[in-house]
Design a protein around this nucleic acid. Structure first.
Lengths: 233, 233
DNA sequence: AATTGTGAATTCCTTCACAGCC
DNA sequence: GGCTGTGAAGGAATTCACAATT
């Protein structure tokens, strides 16, 4: 167990390990070695061991890791022991889709509020019956609903203002879909999902077939996950 | 101009530079130095210069870069001189949203076909009037429509099979929203958008406030973009 | 015998700093 | 004088390889 600063590349991989362990547990596997996991899921065994070792000594030499136990450790480390309450701001196509997205609404994240400043949208309900509220109440509802994560799905020009507003209300974690860089205050984490960059990256690949950027494994994947925070947009 | 292999971190940054240049051009700026761009958009000037230098000598010493000219160079490098034709497979909430998403339908990427294997969805039209087609025709329509990029928005369990199918039809670039790792054949590029990892990363941050993972700049952001390819899921 | 946890080696990426050019 | 392009330095992440442990 170290005290070093832990890279976001490492914590992103924890999510992947958790997903692997969920699969293994569903298959009835009780223990797994880092090598077996690496083989099955295209990972590097030393990296798995090193990543886990930042947080404790979870393995047993000669045996491997107990699947159920490690799974619970990872849930704990990732803060997934209680459901996180989420709000979506901006109910255009993307925001609406996210509001209905099953991946969110079953499990560790629960969408509990929807906001938009378009009067035509206020009062509209999603398929699941949740009502879109006006933007003027964001602050108080975030506090009263105990919202910890905000998803920004507004146009690029409005994103910075929305970040300001939710930061003011005490939100410290933001998932930003607007294709723009946001400068969060210290202590606030913004994670970006930038579809433009993803698509242009594919376009680059098509335009430059000689760059055999194929079969990239976790490295490349997680780098992008990690950089979806950072900076500009 | 080098012949080195170019990292995906570099090409992802090209997208960001392009976005900056679009803004600068819209503001009427005609030339810009790497330092000025770095200051304005939270970048590192040496990195901008180095990234650009992989592709040519676009700058003028003592002056900087001509905004319009560099913009065109980047469009060319990123393969954005012609509209890329895109299909979406899987018209659940997410797929439907992407089908209606304005960011795609104006500009460099055009959605030209929608597929789903749910009989209840076949024949349904999006807001813009595009009709969802059955999955059995994917191969021939991909070829006849000249589709170069496929967006996978099916459940995790179906994603690998869909990848196989579109690869067979000649598609070499895939944007995968299913939370699962896909193993593309050599020469095929898969870019992942994994909302689970993004959200769990925010949850980790909330659970571990001491890790001041704040104010990460391009490094972190682009790593995640880069890693959205790689491996498992 | 098998597998972890980890220092050392390696590879990859970023930043510095300056020669070269406009 | 100002700025690019780039070699060299520095820093970070990954992988190797093995001592420690069950």
């Amino acid at each position: 167990m170290k005290t070093e600063k832990i890279s976001e590349l490492t914590t992103n991989r924890l999510s992947i390990y958790l997903r692997c362990l969920n699969e293994l547990e569903a298959s009835g596997v009780e223990t797994v070695s880092s090598q077996a996991m690496a083989d099955q899921f295209n990972l590097n065994s030393a990296q798995i061991r090193k990543d886990l070792a930042y947080f404790g000594e979870f393995g047993v030499r000669g045996v491997g890791y107990y699947v159920e136990e490690l799974r619970l450790h990872l849930m704990k480390i990732l803060g997934l022991t209680e459901t996180r309450r989420v709000a979506i701001i901006g109910l255009g196509n993307l925001g609406m889709a996210l509001a209905n997205y099953q991946g969110f609404n079953q499990g560790d994240f629960e969408i509990v509020a929807l906001f938009d400043d378009d009067p035509a949208k206020i009062g509209v309900r999603t398929r699941s019956g949740m009502e879109i509220q006006g933007a003027q109440n964001i602050g108080e509802i975030i506090e009263s609903e105990g919202i910890e994560i905000v998803i920004i799905a507004v146009p690029a020009t409005a994103a910075e203002r929305v970040l300001e507003q939710v930061t003011e209300a005490g939100v410290r974690a933001v998932l930003n879909f607007a294709p723009v860089h946001l400068n969060p205050r210290p202590g606030v984490k913004v994670k970006n999902v930038d579809l433009t960059i993803s698509l242009e990256s594919l376009s680059y690949f098509l335009a430059n077939p000689s760059d055999e950027a194929l079969n990239v494994h976790y490295r490349e994947f997680l780098r992008q996950e990690a950089s979806n925070n950072g900076a500009l947009g």
